[in-house]
Simulated scan of single mutants.
Amino acid sequence: MSSSSTLTAKPSITAIVAATQSNGIGLNGGLPWKLPGEMKYFARVTTGESPSTDPTQQNTVIMGRKTWESIPPKFRPLKNRRNLVISSKGVDVSTAPNTSSHPSIPSALSSLPTSPSPSRTFLIGGSQLYTTCITSTPPMVDRILLTRILEPAYECDAFLEDFTSHTSQDGKEVWKKASHAELEGWLGFKVDEENEEKGTRYRFEMWVLDQ
């Protein structure tokens, strides 16, 4: 592969998100639920099983400004991960290690290493970025890790695009749900498919482009 084709190769991006059955993902700038077990899953997946001590080899999380600001300062930036913040107006991340601000998604992606690396890139919110990346043609993400909140029906004011119903111009479904075994194979660890925590039932799913 030539260096020019390496530079223009489409990066593999995984969106990771928790959403209710009506696709609600947030309320008042935060999460409507508090699920420590689900958050541990998020951290384990986005950090990786054996995060490198070399920041350039660590997994990357991409987020919008509002998502960045919704993270409690003591947990910001997300440790053992490269943090990329998208903001057209800019956001001051000068004091945050391994963190950079970018005016657009293409700008953020251009900052990723071009050499082969075992690291992964995750899109972690918010709703506008999810919509942009999932509804583009072709989608900018090629995998969606969805924690489907089964019950109760939480009140939300931010929503995820209903990607499961997307079809191409020729009527084919854009996304297909992978099996749980395929999810575990991609994760590299075992995880219960359905879970209950603090009265909330949820299911771990993986959706991939139907190619």
Rank of each mutant, 00 (worst) to 15 (best):
K34C: 12
V61A: 03
V91G: 07
T53R: 11
G29L: 11
S117V: 01
V91D: 11
Y41F: 15
I105Y: 05
I71D: 07
H102G: 09
S100F: 06
K66H: 13
Q57P: 10
V61H: 03
S88D: 04
F42T: 05
A43G: 10
L129S: 01
T20Y: 09
N23G: 07
P103N: 13
R65F: 15
A96F: 15
F42K: 03
T99Q: 12
P116D: 00
L35A: 07
R44G: 01
L84T: 02
T60G: 07
S127E: 10
L109Y: 02
K34F: 11
S52M: 06
S127F: 09
G24H: 11
T132F: 14
N80M: 06
S104F: 04
T56Q: 13
H102M: 04
Q21I: 10
K79H: 10
A96S: 15
T131C: 00
A96P: 04
G126H: 04
S94R: 13
R120C: 00
A43R: 15
S22V: 12
E38R: 05
T20L: 08
L27Q: 13
T60P: 02
S119A: 11
V45G: 03
Q21N: 11
L31M: 14
G24T: 07
N98D: 15
P113C: 06
I124P: 00
T47N: 00
P36R: 06
S87K: 10
N28M: 10
R82M: 12
K89R: 15
G125P: 05
I86K: 02
L123V: 00
K74L: 13
K79D: 05
S115A: 12
P72V: 04
K40I: 06
D54S: 15
A43W: 14
Y130D: 02
Y41V: 07
T60Y: 00
F122G: 08
Q21R: 14
G30Q: 13
V45K: 06
M39I: 07
S111P: 06
N83W: 05
S100G: 14
H102R: 09
K34E: 13
V91T: 15
P113I: 05
F75S: 11
P118K: 12
T47D: 00
P77A: 03
P55A: 10
P77G: 01
S70A: 12
L84N: 07
Q128W: 02
G30L: 03
F122C: 08
L84I: 04
P32I: 08
Q57C: 13
A96W: 15
S110N: 12
Q128P: 02
I62R: 01
T46C: 06
P106Y: 05
T95I: 11
C133N: 07
P72M: 01
K34R: 15
V91E: 13
A108F: 04
P113E: 08
G30H: 10
T132R: 15
P55C: 09
E49D: 09
L129T: 00
T67C: 09
S111R: 10
Y130W: 05
N83P: 06
N98V: 14
S107N: 14
T95M: 08
I86A: 01
P32N: 10
N59C: 09
T47I: 05
W33T: 00
N83D: 06
S115Q: 02
N83C: 07
L31R: 07
T60M: 01
I62Q: 01
K74R: 14
M39K: 11
S104E: 04
